[in-house]
Simulated assay, not measured.
Amino acid sequence: MTIPQQSSLLRMSTFRLARRLRAQKSDDSVSDAQFAVLATLSIHGAHTLSALAERERVSAPSMNRTVNCLEEAGFLARTEDAVDRRKTNISLTASGIELVEATVSKRDAWLTERMRDLTADERDLLARAAELMGRLATQ
């Protein structure tokens, strides 16, 4: 198999697995893009709107719409910055934290069940592949 064929196979398999994982949600009313924002705040902490838009690689107006929706749902809150009162920080509420934890737990459980059907060698191979995929993603 050529490198372009391997690349195509990796891309298609990664997308299929990602789609199956994204389907494992604790709240179906939250879109994938909205959950990505919640997960980002969970991992990296509070952000300003512009910093969050930059991290997610979307426009500030688009991020503002997403944040407004999540705020209305009670998953995040805006607070005035203690140092610079012109800034507003966006952070998860208790409900937002619960949603992220429940969804991550559901996704991990789904994947764990699928991996139980693999041999130990296959699971080791996937662990090594995950390391390589992580490296590719940061290049």
Rank of each mutant, 00 (worst) to 15 (best):
M1N: 11
M1E: 08
T2I: 04
T2K: 05
P4F: 12
Q5K: 13
Q5I: 15
Q5A: 15
S7F: 13
S13V: 06
T14Q: 04
F15H: 10
F15I: 15
R16G: 03
R16K: 13
L17S: 04
D27H: 04
D28T: 11
S29A: 08
S29I: 02
S31P: 08
Q34T: 00
Q34N: 03
A36P: 07
A39M: 05
T40F: 03
T40R: 14
L41G: 00
S42I: 00
I43H: 08
I43P: 00
H44R: 14
H44A: 10
H44F: 13
A46C: 01
L49I: 06
A51R: 12
A53K: 09
A53P: 07
R55G: 02
V58G: 03
S59F: 09
S59G: 15
S59A: 13
N64A: 10
R65H: 11
C69S: 07
E71T: 13
A73Q: 12
F75T: 06
A77N: 03
R78G: 14
T79N: 12
E80V: 14
D81C: 09
V83C: 01
D84Q: 08
R85E: 07
R86M: 03
T88A: 02
N89Y: 09
S91F: 03
S95R: 10
L99E: 04
L99P: 09
L99Y: 01
A102S: 15
T103C: 04
K106H: 06
A109V: 03
R114W: 00
D117K: 04
D117C: 02
D117S: 13
L118M: 07
L118T: 01
D121E: 15
D121N: 10
E122I: 00
D124E: 06
L126V: 00
A127I: 02
R128L: 07
E131L: 15
G134A: 06
Q139M: 12
Q139T: 05
